[in-house]
Design a protein around this nucleic acid. Structure first.
Lengths: 214, 214
DNA sequence: ACCTGAACACCGTTCAAGT
DNA sequence: ACCTGAACACCGTTCAAGT
């Protein structure tokens, strides 16, 4: 076959197929040979479009970041900083829980991913505009990211096994019914996220009062 | 050689060596062959002590969890719930930043790891004793974990490259000096952690007032 | 019970060769 | 420029064989 007149591959097609494979079968299912087979080419062909497999996964992660709604940070949106932060956090978490298998890649910081940086930029800009000092605005972007990605990655309940015998009450005196948590995994995660988000925003509001009063 | 009179390996020795390798060279450096070589045995020997490589890494992560100070949750410690939560969070984060390379494994939830579960149990127990309703106590354990592991994993600044030319101000209007962040990476992360932790605790204190007043 | 070497079915990546 | 097959240096894991 060698080179066809029209390229068989493009970066977008590789990223889309890799993303679908990650969603369907997890991060471990993505090998260059498997991904290439899914695309109808041979493994090494991918290296004409990406330098490493890791760059492909970074691009998949960035495509998820690109889905995060940022309209609440628009200059003329009208939402106050607190509401904007809340709505953004909910949108961000939704984007991550829609694609849980790529979260481990995404959670490692915005890195060089354009969409990830765009998110950081939007939060920072909106907080400064709302009156936050620049240093605090940087902190807010970072700490919100910690909480949101942490919640998408570290599902508390996911770890528990749906088997009572797995937990000896003598070892974990307060977690005697931990197995129940596995059943209501999503409720716990969503409740913890909502509680944490509100607590975070309440706490920031206190600091905001102190900050703008310089 | 075959079987020696005294076992060459033990689970503890494997975990200790794997942990040292992870710390020194990162998660990717740990292959069964490499780890075995470090231990002076051949690769398959590890399978007499662990079922999979993943179980070894889980054990390494659990050993880090075991270093987290939990004394502030002791029944007779005397610290109020808020101070205990703060001190625990600081200790937890310190344990993680001491061993950053294993954090991706640890961040995926407590799973079946005994020490991870012991941490969850201690937090839950102390919050209930302090007067929090059980459902809220579960949420607090989860959301604190989200924030702490998220902060250890997703260093905001780490991602930025120490090269001004990497960021076109036209793309990220508010991050024009993002390259500066790389220089003060630790300060940003620590500041964001401290700010977020205090905000979280302030916010929880508000909810506590409402909760205990049933 | 606990170690070994050989083997199986994979990996990511490089590279010369083809059009 | 963009694809190919062959090759290199690896993987995790299984298993029969040894003591």
């Amino acid at each position: 076959m060698a080179r066809p007149r029209k390229p068989l591959l493009s970066r977008d097609r590789i990223v889309a197929t890799a993303g679908a494979l990650v969603d369907a079968e997890g991060l471990d299912a993505v090998s260059t040979r498997r991904l290439a087979a899914e695309l109808g080419v041979s493994g090494p062909s991918l290296y004409n479009h990406f330098r490493t497999k890791d760059e492909i996964l970074e691009a998949v992660a960035d495509a998820v970041s690109a889905k995060v709604d940022l309209s609440m940070f628009d200059e003329h949106d009208g939402r106050d900083w607190r509401t904007a932060l809340h709505d953004w956090a909910v949108s961000y978490r939704a984007a991550l829980t829609d694609h849980p298998n790529i979260v481990p890649v995404l959670a490692r910081g915005p890195g060089r991913r354009p969409a990830g940086l765009r998110v950081a930029d939007a939060v920072f800009g909106a907080m400064v505009r709302a009156g936050w000092p620049a240093a605090q605005a940087t902190h807010i972007g970072a700490l919100m990211r910690y909480f949101i990605t942490g919640s998408a990655l570290g599902s508390f309940a996911r770890g528990f096994v749906d088997d009572e015998t797995a937990y000896d009450p003598a070892d974990y005196p307060h977690l005697g019914q931990a197995h129940l948590l596995a059943e209501r995994q999503q409720q716990v995660d969503e409740g913890a996220f909502e509680t944490g988000l509100r607590a975070l925003l309440d706490g920031l509001a206190v600091r905001y009062e102190a900050a703008v009063r310089h």
